[in-house]
Design a protein around this nucleic acid. Structure first.
Lengths: 192, 192
DNA sequence: CGTCTATTTGAATGTACTCAAAAGCGGTGG
DNA sequence: CCACCGCTTTTGAGTACATTCAAATAGACG
């Protein structure tokens, strides 16, 4: 297990001793999920943060009108959770589904709180992960309010080629907050 | 200085000894800025994170077409920076201006990196601040892509009454990513 | 091969923008 | 204290962006 991608991901930010790695590993749950399986269901308490060891996931919200909004994708080497519900341990706004057969690694809220207490390296690790996540969301918010859909689409496609390979156009449309029909017409018109 | 709001803010998340508070305080720069003064200028390296001790700030981007987009407001007891540029120590995308005469507290990147190394409590503190910031941005992203402008406006007004008192309608429009003219027509139509 | 879903296309409608002009408001100087 | 100036807000007409609904086509999968 110690040759898993998750340890390479961590090693980018902090260096752990063999013992620390072992302890961390002992807290993880590795799960193989199949395509379309839900790792987290909306309304359910969000008890864990997830790492994509292999495969791909999508976090989305289904509203009262039946409209799906994709908030995030996660491919190999990415972390994902419904952050707001995770940190407050309350009912999730998002569902998270597998886009294909995937291997995911689960770290529960309680285990993570224990890690924070037992070893400041984990405070550091997640401080870095969260600061990076916040930074990305801040840039995304700027793009959302300042750019036209067409430009946002091509920026997304440029920035995340690994995601483009895994997802349908309908899912990208729901990530951009437009209808699949409109995204279709955008792609047809000649682009920059 | 130790009765400043910033220490109450920190005490919500970690408890520091008198010595730790003193050390932290020794790293801070307190500045009085006047209305319209720029704390951070776009294109300039973003070297610090700021805390609003008193007053209010606005972070915005000015694009090539001369269009201003407000990414965030900060009132008393809030932290603000151009996160992406702060953590990479590169040219800022945002300018930050004072909306009124304000007292702000500046913590530089280098000082903060020193704090992380010297005392894990600061890793914890900023881990919590960043996770909360990320959580808020995630919710905001969902609202941006799923809700109509009208609903976003009233949600914002409900959630941040302290900000509503300080900012113009034009600035709110630029935060929502719509024109001031359009926001004006929204307010006129009868609302939910 | 047949079924289910994704994608495309088009017409009609709604949402939001641009441009222009008028009205309102706050601050400054005489 | 009033008059003027600059900026914000409002209003309206015309246009562009994006949605809804419906139907046709194309792909994916068992």
């Amino acid at each position: 297990m110690i040759d898993y991608q998750i340890f390479k991901n961590i090693a980018k930010h902090v260096s752990l001793s063999t013992n620390e790695v072992q302890h961390f590993a002992s807290l993880l749950f590795v799960r193989d999920v199949q395509k379309k399986e839900l790792i987290l269901k909306q309304e359910q308490i969000c008890r864990s943060i997830y790492f994509v060891e292999e495969g791909s996931l999508r976090g989305f919200n289904l509203n009262d009108d039946g409209k799906e909004c994709t908030l995030m994708f996660a491919v190999r080497d990415w972390w994902i959770t419904d952050m707001n519900c995770f940190i407050n341990q309350k009912a999730a706004i998002l569902s998270i589904e597998a886009l294909e057969a995937s291997k995911i690694i689960e770290l529960t809220f309680d285990a993570l709180e224990g890690l924070y207490k037992s070893n400041p390296k984990f405070e550091r690790l997640f401080r870095i992960l969260f600061q990076n996540a916040y930074s990305r969301e801040q840039v995304r918010a700027l793009h959302n309010i300042s750019l036209k859909t067409e430009k946002r689409y091509y920026k997304f496609a440029d920035k995340y080629p690994a995601i483009m390979k895994k997802v349908t156009q309908k899912q990208i449309a729901s990530y951009l907050g437009v209808t699949p029909e409109f995204l279709s017409t955008i792609k047809k018109s000649k682009h920059s």
